[in-house]
Structure formats: structure tokens, C-alpha cells
């Protein structure tokens, strides 16, 4: 029985106590460079250790509460890190200046991610429309036309690096075709 091990008991309660200072990689005992397969393996490993069902038969008390808190955070970490897009955003967050406030991926992280994604696709109606037209041209193999549309889009939003990137791609393809 896991609960009778006094070392496990002490360690678990200590972990629950510092939970709010750990990032999701630390919770899952992973390097920040971990691959999706490693993340999944870590999630299973930590689930085997901390899944509350394993402690169900114990009397209610501090250990059970600690396990509950830890496991909810393990699930939270898994939900964030299993998603490539969320993981990328989270990595930037915890390695940035605001680390302490961004240890947990919240609805505001979600909003920022959505904003970032929107920003990539254009922030002005004209830029957005030109860019979309360019993407369609690109898909259809009309590379010269695509380059033209991306160039127009960039005129409305000169700062948009994604527009720039797509323009270069279309230009390269257009010249390759000739």
C-alpha cells in the first residue's frame, strides 16, 4: 500500500506544498525539450504514482488531499503539453519575464494564443483578405498571383512576419516554375 510508506507520505505532502512554484515540465519530471512520446510516457508514469484511485481505500486526510491536488495538476500539465500549439505558447511563457505568473496555462493564455493566431492571419480587413486570396492561389499553384497578393497584404501590415514568410515562399516557387 503506497500510503504506509512514510517517505512517500512526506514527499507527497511536500510536493503538494510547492505545486504552485513548479511548471508543467517539472510536475511531469521532464526536460523542456521532451518529445510527445516522452510527455505521454511521463504522464502515464506520474499517473501510476499519483492517481487518486490508488489511495481511495485510505482514510480521508492530508495525504489523500495532497494526492488529489497533485493529480489534478498532472492532468492540467498533460492537457497543455500534449497539444503542440499550447506547449509552444507555454514554453515561451515560462521562459519569459512573467514566468511566475504564467506557470499555469489559463483562459488568458488561451486568449493570447488566439490573438497571436489571429495576428498571423492579419489584423486589418484588407490585409486579411489579400492574404487569404494569396493562400488560395498558393494552394492552386498560381505562384506569381500568390506573390502579388502577399505583397499587397504586406503593404497593409508591414510588420507581419508571417506575410513576409509567405511572400518569400511564393516568390521562390514562382521563379522555380519559370
Amino acid at each position: 500500500m503506497p500510503g504506509v510508506d512514510p517517505v512517500f507520505d512526506i514527499e507527497t505532502q511536500a510536493l503538494a506544498g510547492v505545486l504552485d512554484q513548479l511548471d508543467y515540465f517539472q510536475i511531469l519530471k521532464l526536460e523542456q525539450t521532451a518529445s510527445p512520446a516522452e510527455i505521454k510516457a511521463a504522464y502515464f508514469r506520474e499517473s501510476r504514482t499519483y492517481h487518486p484511485d490508488r489511495f481511495f481505500a485510505l482514510p480521508d486526510g492530508d495525504l489523500k488531499r495532497a494526492v488529489g491536488r497533485i493529480y489534478r495538476r498532472i492532468n492540467e500539465a498533460w492537457v497543455c503539453l500534449r497539444d503542440d500549439e499550447k506547449r509552444e505558447k507555454y514554453l515561451a511563457d515560462i521562459n519569459g519575464q512573467d514566468r511566475d505568473r504564467k506557470l499555469r496555462y489559463t483562459e488568458s493564455s488561451e486568449e493570447e494564443l488566439k490573438r497571436d493566431r489571429d495576428a498571423l492571419l492579419g489584423t486589418t480587413p484588407q490585409g486579411r483578405a489579400m492574404f487569404q486570396a494569396g493562400l488560395l492561389d498558393l494552394d492552386a499553384g498560381r505562384y506569381a498571383q500568390a506573390a502579388q497578393n502577399f505583397r499587397m497584404a504586406r503593404m497593409y501590415e508591414p510588420q507581419n512576419v508571417y506575410f513576409q514568410e509567405k511572400l518569400e515562399e511564393a516568390t521562390r516557387l514562382a521563379s522555380g516554375k519559370k
Binding site: 487518486p52 488529489g68 493529480y71 489534478r72 492532468n75 492540467e76 498533460w78 492537457v79 489559463t106 483562459e107
Partner: peptide
């Protein structure tokens, strides 16, 4: 409404606002 937790999220789980 505003979404707090997605469907198909593993449980137990928590979210604060």
C-alpha cells in the same frame, strides 16, 4: 457563456477564474 474546461479533458481536473 465562456468556456472554462474543454470536453474530453481528463478528470479529475480544476480551473480557476
Amino acid at each position: 457563456t465562456e468556456k472554462m474546461l474543454d470536453k474530453n479533458t481528463p478528470v479529475p481536473i480544476e480551473r480557476s477564474k
